[in-house]
Amino acid sequence: MKYTVQIVGVGGQGVLLASMVLGNAAMNIGYKVAMSEVHGMAQRGGSVLSTLRFGDDVISPLEAAGSADLIMGFEPAETCRNLPLANRDSVILMNLDPVLPSMVAAGFEEYPDIEDLKKAVSDVNPNLFVIDATKIAIEAGKAVAANAVMIGAVAAIKGFPIPKDKLLEALIEQVPEKFRDLNVKAFEMGYNSL
């Protein structure tokens, strides 16, 4: 068994934390894990991509284009930008809450209609799951818990190789004690939303 998750989003959204949670959960159940992260310059509000691979015999920290089993999209435009990492059978989880790029905010560029982005994915892939992760996180208590919502949603995806309790356990390990309840609540809400 080999499984690849491509986690995409914008610097500051918690992509790295999510990849740590999934990676640790995979390690804890005995899988080999190989990951690759983007650090440095790109984190300043730029697109970020984190590759997570786990299974019986993985060593490469990168995956070929088209070979992702799951795209965990923290932001709709970034999910669409990275669609060539996936194939027809991949599962695509897309948070519908946009983060406006600076050039859009300043009025120099347009952000596409969310419905168009949904359609762009569902036209070529039948396994799209959409989620209002940021809104759900605010409902759970704080927008920063959106990554916990996303991880909860991943736990609900049929066929995802890491069981829900192991994901939750790894999440609790990774977040500061004082935000534990918030994250558990957000995780459960994400799980139930799918």
Binding site: A65, G66, L83, P84, N87, E109, D116
Partner: peptide, 23 residues
């Protein structure tokens, strides 16, 4: 070499650029 699965095509919707930027 492993036969890699055919990737999905790039979307045709025009996506905004997102270069790293000053905070």
């Amino acid at each position: 070499v492993t036969d890699f699965t055919q990737p999905l095509p790039a979307v045709t919707v025009k996506l905004p650029s997102r270069p790293p930027t000053l905070c």
